[in-house]
């Protein structure tokens, strides 16, 4: 009797765990046995999504760059974002590794050779990219209802943070780095954040995510507001290509208080959108 019961139990377990083919953000088809029990996240943004979707109990290790939410500090570290520790990752025998893509290419190849499934999540916009990544990560636990609930909640936060439809659209220049001068281009999810906050990116036509631009382009496109996504030098407002724009003349040049909320494609984007929206409102009523 006991033997039959265990046989049925094993068969049921085998039925529940099934190999799923997931297409990641770079078009790779990855076999993952879901629901997963152990995840290693190598990307700070994806770690935040894992927490948002309520999968943190399955998180066995993260990268040293994963610093939000605070609870990540207690987790094991499997190398850094740029140098993932393959040996350590392998030692956890994770069901899946979540990678931030591109720069981790070598680590991804090594993990694939070791038969560890790696999902590359690198969204380029919010609607199709980030929401899909949330579905992918949430889906790893197999609880579809929870996935739907969390995404609905996320959309509500995003909509609450976004600008009213009658908000006057301002031309905005967002600078990612000043030496060399790099802007947010049209193919970045940050472009979407700006749109939601009621701004129009002056480099929305650029085909790359973060193009290296010439300063006179900024003058030519004459933004109403300039937002810096990094800590600049002391007298940054004195830069010639800032001073020659409408933004520079009015003094509408801002540095984000918490750039991670904007720079990480994760659940804190609504807070990032709100930061940008507040800046735009402040400058519009000046």
């Amino acid at each position: 009797m006991k033997k039959t019961f265990f046989t049925i139990l094993l068969a049921a377990a085998a039925f529940c765990i099934h190999a799923e083919i997931i297409t990641d953000d770079v078009g790779r088809k990855v076999d993952v046995n879901t629901p997963v029990e152990s995840i290693v996240s190598l990307s700070p943004a994806d770690t935040e999504i894992i927490y948002w979707m309520g999968l943190e109990s399955r998180l066995v290790a993260v990268s040293t760059n994963c610093d939000y939410p605070r609870a990540t500090k207690e987790l094991d570290k499997a190398g850094s974002f740029l140098n993932p520790d393959i040996e350590k990752i392998t030692s956890y025998k994770p069901d899946v590794v979540i990678s931030g893509g591109g720069i981790q290419k070598k680590a991804i190849e090594k993990l694939e050779k070791l038969k560890i499934p790696v999902l590359v999540l690198y969204p380029k916009d919010i609607d199709k990219g980030l929401i899909k990544d949330m579905e992918t990560i949430g889906g790893l636990a197999g609880d579809i209802m929870n996935v739907k609930k969390r995404i609905l909640e996320y959309r509500r936060f995003l909509s609450d943070a976004s600008a009213e439809s009658d908000f006057k659209t301002l031309k905005v220049y967002m600078e990612v780095w000043g030496q060399p001068v790099m802007a947010v281009g049209g193919k970045s999810f940050i472009n979407d954040e700006l749109k939601l906050a009621g701004g129009k990116n002056i480099f929305y036509k650029s085909r790359s995510e973060y193009p290296k631009i010439t300063p006179e382009d900024v003058v030519k496109l004459n933004p109403d507001v300039i937002i810096l996504l990094y800590k600049p030098e002391k007298n940054f407002k004195e830069r010639a290509y800032f001073k020659l724009t409408k933004a520079g003349k009015k003094g509408d040049i801002y540095v984000l208080d918490n750039p991670d909320t904007v720079l990480r494609a994760g659940p804190r984007i609504p807070a990032g959108v709100k930061q940008i929206k507040d800046i735009l409102e402040r400058s519009e009523y000046k």
Partner: peptide, 18 residues
């Protein structure tokens, strides 16, 4: 501290824009 290494790499590439 790998967080900002990419900025060092960019700086090393040489730039006269700013």
């Amino acid at each position: 501290f790998s967080k900002d290494l990419i900025k060092v790499v960019f700086w090393l590439m040489g730039d006269l824009s700013n």
